[in-house]
């Protein structure tokens, strides 16, 4: 850390009212002063980076351990790589990540189909419990959707005429 005035402790009044108990994060934080050592602490052995790992540009190195699940791939992966070029402060980081998640949901369906799996979307959404505990709500939703669809179709047909 660069301290411009090395003699700061000789400034009149310096440190007179230090009160370590006046720590706004107490009792969550047991303040030791180690914060001023920054990243100078004993680190464990670095986990081997054997998958593509997107790293926040707000830190210089990978964390000692990390999750190696679901590395970026496909179109969503391209969007995620773009997002990680920007800091966590920027919308250009977070909004592309949300977009990538939506794209990724479609990629998941394609991935399933490529493996010969037809995703049972209704089961994945918990249709069994829906029918058991919310049959009325489910039926209402179906009826409203059907009614809106019929009205839309009728409106489009009328417009064509």
């Amino acid at each position: 850390m660069n301290i411009e005035n090395e003699d700061y402790k000789n400034i009149p009044g310096w440190g007179m009212d230090i009160d370590l108990d006046n720590e706004p994060t107490y009792p969550m934080k047991n303040y030791t002063g180690d914060d001023h050592k920054r990243s100078d602490y004993e680190r464990s052995e670095q986990q081997k980076v054997d998958v593509e790992l997107l790293k926040s540009n707000e830190r210089p190195q990978y964390s000692v351990v990390f999750g190696n699940t679901v590395p970026p791939s496909g179109l969503s992966g391209m969007i995620r790589r773009y997002a990680f070029k920007h800091s966590e402060d920027r919308y250009r980081h977070w909004i592309p990540l949300i977009m990538a998640d939506r794209v990724n949901a479609w990629e998941g369906i394609i991935e399933d189909l490529a493996k010969g799996i037809i995703p049972n979307v209704l089961a994945e959404r918990g249709i069994k419990s829906e029918l058991r505990y919310n049959a009325k709500g489910f039926a209402t939703k179906i009826l409203v959707t059907a009614a809106v669809s019929v009205l839309m179709i009728a409106w489009i047909r009328n417009k064509k005429k």
Partner: peptide
Amino acid sequence: HESNSMATA
């Protein structure tokens, strides 16, 4: 500080 490479927040 040593468990997440992908975000500092």
